[in-house]
Structure formats: structure tokens, C-alpha cells
Design a protein around this nucleic acid. Structure first.
Lengths: 233, 233
DNA sequence: TGACATAATATGTATATACATAATAATGGT
DNA sequence: ACCATTATTATGTATATACATATTATGTCA
């Protein structure tokens, strides 16, 4: 490392990842301490520390003070899915985006919705349904309930140019969210919207967002079953 | 903070997250530089840097050299799903885990499988199918093809006590993986295994794993459609 | 022996400093 | 005006040092 070759934590991280992948460091095994590794790699302990911390955060290493660092026994890697705004998702795939507002009314939310949002008593909420299209073909049907107490300003939005999702993203912050994926069968409403037969499979993404102590919105985003969510790691 | 109160990057990160959530720093806005923030928070630039980097990695900030740091315009938060080993998943939910080996043979892999694995010509592969049960009820049906060139040792494994997934996790490293989620209809085979009617919806997780230039395995993990994958953020 | 205090140790974090790098802004020549 | 060169600037990274903290190992006293 005389002139140029400062060891970067990237390189060190990669080398350690290799050792883990190739079983040089076996699952469950205790690996050398930071000082030792720092000497081995010819760098400062802080550099090794950063590499180790990132690997630990990725789940391939488990670290405990005094006990040392060991290779995770079950590297149950986590898959990260980005859930982009539909428009971006469609445009990224090269489709032409359009959306159609299906309905936009204030009405009593059904129990299944209020329950999910942690609201105990029946309540008027804004119910917005719309359809997102890619190249004129139905791509996603969005069925959303919005808590007017949390975002009163949305009451007067017409959603002629912005979708409710985009409106909320730019106007309403949230601090917590819950996302659920599951499979289901298209109900008549959904089938009609998505040009599917009744009882065709659908891929459902549900999202709940909250501010501390204040539910904001509950959405069901329904895709044809053939929709694929892909991630690489 | 004279004596004890060293500002931790955690506190700083939390405060900055609050400012973003509460729109003190609006989406798209340029936030102060590291030096400025360091002065404001009364800490070293490195500490601010760490907080900023973590927020950037989480997607709420976008950083560019010289240009500065700004709040992400579309905080298209990423959802992180841990895909645990089925046994753990079931046991975590309090179920009693069992698994049944359905078949375990070496045979010609169909084109749809070899293609996904990037193998051009027809090839003998190990085809293992098994069923994972929670409290004696079918939970997941696993249909797996394994490249014997990549893991020759697996040929003689009987899978009487370990599931193929667990065997591979502990015996075969991988460096890359691809995961796909989608919804489908149960075919007769799957319906039979999972105690479903034909044409009931199923939730399918497909996973491909590789070493550089060497495909290892392709799995389809099929759940009843009611299966819910949940994540919070 | 057993309970409890104490030392040893690996990781965790903060800091000052220095230099690297990318991208923009300013500059100057044609 | 236009283009290329150079300066400036914000972030990115490495390092030595110091101290914090969690946890294990050890030693002491009853």
C-alpha cells in the first residue's frame, strides 16, 4: 500500500464474503478477531470493522462482543424487493403508463378495513379505486381507503392527473408500514377491471401505512396472477 | 454533553429520519452538508457521515458527490423479506414441523428448468420433491432440481432426516440467487399435495441459486393461496 | 463449593486528520 | 459563444487513537 494500493473495505468485504461462500470459513465457525484481520489485510482495524459490520448487517455474520464474530449458521438471506410507484414500474419496463379513476367517494369503511387499520368504531373514509394500465392493458387494480383525519387535504383532490398513491407519497409522510403478499382468486369486480375470468388467480399486495398512533391508508393492489416480482441477490 | 453525552450516530440518524418524516426536510430538498450538520449536532463529520450513509442506504436520502445530499423524491422504500428455512418459519409460528419426501430421482430435466438455469443442452439432474407440514397440515410443497455437477455429493443423500433445502444450505455455498414471487393455480399434482382443489390459487416462490458460471439449483416452493408473506418497515 | 466482585477482551463508537474522487463551477483561450 | 482546462467543493474512505460496553474468564472470600 505504498503508493496507491490503499485497501478498501469493499475489497476486504468481498474477500471475506468469498471465504464464507467457499467454506474457507465454515458456517458456525468463529473467525479471527478484528485486530488479527487488520494485520492480515494490512489495514486499520476500523476498515476491517466496517467490512465486518456490513456483512453482519447482511446476515452472513453474527457478531457478539467479547464472544467474537462467527459465520451465520443458517444464512437465511433476506430478499429485498423494491416496491416502486406503479407508474415507474411500468415505465421502467418500457410500457406506456395510463391510469383510470374508477371511483372516489367518502363512505363508511367496512369492518375488515378499519380492523386492519386498528380503528375500533365505524368511520367515514375516502374510498378510491383506480386502474393502472401498461400499453392500454390493465396492469394493476388499486383499491384504497384513506383516513381523512390523517390527511384532510386529500378530500378535495380529484385525481385527474395524479394517482392517489403519488399524491400520498408527495403529501403525506409515514413512519411505519406493513406489506403483505398473497395469492387469491379474482372476485367479479377485480376480474372485470383486470380483464380476467372470474376465479383466475391474482397476486395481491396489501400495504398499510401509519404515523405513530395514526393510521393513514390501507391499499390492496391487485395484479393478474402472471405478474412476477423478481429480486436478485 | 460535556462529559458523558457523546452524540451517537444513532441519535443523529433518528433525528434526521424524523425531519424527513415530518417534512422539515421536504422530498427532493437539498439538506445541509456534512460539515454544517456536524456543527449543528456538535459532533465530528465522520459521525454525521455514518448517519447519512445509513439513511441513504435505506433509500430515504440520495447522495451525490459535490452535488450534496437530498431527500429522495419517491421514497420507494424497499420491502425486505427474510426467506427463512421452512422449518424455522413453521416453528417460529408455533407449529410442529414435519416433512415428507415425495420423490428423489435422477432424470432428464425439462427444458423449462434447464433454460432457467442457463443450461443449453438436456441434462440429467437430481429431482427432489417434498412436502413440508405444520401441525400435520400441508404447508409448502417443494419441487426442486439440482445440478449434480455443482453438488455431486448430494447424489447419495437420502433426505430421511434433512430436507434438501437444509442440506444445500449447510453443504453448498452460492454466490448469487434470484427469487421470484407470483400467483398461480394449483395443478393436479400440487393440489393433491397441499390438500387443495384443482384451480385453487397458490402462492409460488421460485428460487434459483448459482455459483459464478455454475447453476446449482432451481426450486419452486408452492403455498396455498392463503399464505401471507408479511414485512414491516 | 458457590456467590460475587474484578479483570480481560472483542466489538462498538467517536474523533481528528488526511487524502481520494466525482461533479460542478469558474476560467481562459480560440 | 464555445470548448477545454482548472479550481472548488461535498461526499467517500482510510487511519490512529481513545474510550465505551457487553460478555466471558478469573480470582477471592465466606
Amino acid at each position: 500500500m505504498t503508493a496507491t494500493a490503499r485497501k478498501s473495505f469493499h475489497a476486504i468485504k468481498a474477500e471475506m464474503a468469498r471465504r464464507i461462500a467457499e467454506r474457507v470459513w465454515a458456517p458456525g465457525a468463529l473467525i479471527p478477531g478484528e485486530e488479527v484481520l487488520a494485520v492480515e489485510f494490512g489495514c486499520a482495524r476500523a476498515t476491517v470493522n466496517r467490512a465486518l459490520q456490513e456483512l453482519a448487517r447482511g446476515g452472513v455474520l453474527v457478531r457478539k462482543r467479547k464472544a467474537g464474530t462467527r459465520v451465520a449458521l443458517h444464512p437465511m438471506r433476506e430478499a429485498r424487493f423494491v416496491i416502486p410507484i406503479v407508474r415507474q414500474e411500468i415505465e421502467n419496463k418500457g410500457g406506456a403508463y395510463q391510469f383510470r379513476l374508477v371511483s372516489n367517494v367518502v363512505e363508511k369503511a367496512p369492518a375488515c378495513v378499519t380492523k386492519r387499520l386498528g380503528i375500533t368504531k365505524a368511520k367515514d373514509m375516502l374510498h378510491v379505486r383506480c386502474l393502472h394500465l401498461s400499453d392500454e392493458k390493465p396492469y394493476q387494480y388499486e383499491d384504497r381507503w384513506i383516513n381523512l383525519d390523517a390527511v384532510p387535504a386529500i378530500r378535495h383532490e380529484t385525481f385527474e392527473t395524479v394517482s392517489p398513491n403519488e399524491w400520498l407519497v408527495t403529501h403525506s409522510p409515514f413512519s411505519q408500514a406493513e406489506i403483505v403478499f398473497h395469492a387469491g382468486l379474482a372476485d367479479p369486480d377485480e376480474a372485470d377491471m383486470l380483464d380476467l375470468g372470474v376465479n383466475d388467480p391474482v397476486f395481491v399486495i396489501e400495504r398499510l401505512t401509519y404515523l405513530p398512533q395514526k393510521p393513514i391508508t390501507f391499499v390492496r393492489m391487485i395484479h393478474p396472477g402472471s405478474h412476477r416480482m423478481v429480486t436478485k441477490l
